[in-house]
């Protein structure tokens, strides 16, 4: 679920952060975290925080600003589940087209209706998906803890392409919906879906 990514970057430390009370390492770490923590790098993943600093150059002061420039090599902890990984999440909402999942720290997980078990249908009355298996009806209730498998990734670079305003309103609407990093997941296989469906009949507990 988590990887380490090695990055080289120029860190600029403001003079006010360069004090005997705040060691140099802390100033670098804060700077790196402020820039990367909780942000998405395209094709890398959702950055969590600094893991360690591998190397740093001497600080150079550029003319005019007093900023100290340091070239740093460091590793970040990045959230980037691999294809096929099984993870835990929660159902945040459901529509006719599928189910949105989230984790506490990452919100953009989408399960299209084709990736739900066969025999599932959307119940507009309950506002959730229902899996009809035999006589039983099992509900994908909102906020339920679920297990899902990562199927695909969807990347959208957020960098503005041009300064021109979009030519029509449709363009604008589409642009706004794209999140930088979306996980397309599946809950089709046995064992996936709400944990409560599967974890109930544990023979080891019955023995206890």
């Amino acid at each position: 679920m988590f990887i380490l990514t090695k990055i080289a970057d120029l860190v600029q430390i403001e003079p006010k952060h360069f004090s005997p009370f705040k060691p140099g390492y802390q100033a670098l770490a804060d700077n790196i975290n402020a820039k990367y923590a909780n942000k998405v790098i395209q094709k890398i993943g959702h950055c969590i925080c600094l893991y360690d600093i591998l190397a740093s150059s001497d600080g150079l002061i550029g003319s005019g600003t007093g900023l100290v420039n340091v070239n740093v090599e460091f590793r970040l902890i990045v959230f980037r589940p691999f294809k096929g990984e099984v993870m835990i999440g929660r159902i945040s909402s459901a529509t006719v087209d599928g189910i949105y999942l989230r984790t506490h720290f990452f919100e953009d997980i989408w399960v299209p209706k084709g990736n739900l078990p066969e025999g599932s249908y959307y119940s507009p009355h309950e506002g959730c998906w229902v899996w009809k298996t035999g006589d039983a009806e099992l509900f994908f209730d909102t906020q339920e803890t679920v297990r899902f498998r990562v199927d695909e990734e969807d990347w959208h670079d957020q960098t503005p392409i041009s300064a021109q305003p979009p030519s029509n309103e449709d363009d604008f609407a589409v642009k706004e919906k794209d999140v930088p990093y979306k996980i397309i997941a599946t809950m089709e296989d046995a064992g996936l879906g709400p944990c409560l469906w599967w974890d109930g009949d544990d023979p080891m507990e019955e023995d206890a």
Partner: peptide, 27 residues
């Protein structure tokens, strides 16, 4: 250095996209 003031993001260079995998416990 002066250029980099203007294009902050450009200074980032990915050296290794995935240098290791971590288990949840380590994180």
């Amino acid at each position: 250095i002066r250029l980099s003031f203007q294009f902050l993001l450009v200074t980032m260079k990915i050296l290794e996209a995935q240098s290791a995998q971590l288990v949840n416990y380590e994180v």
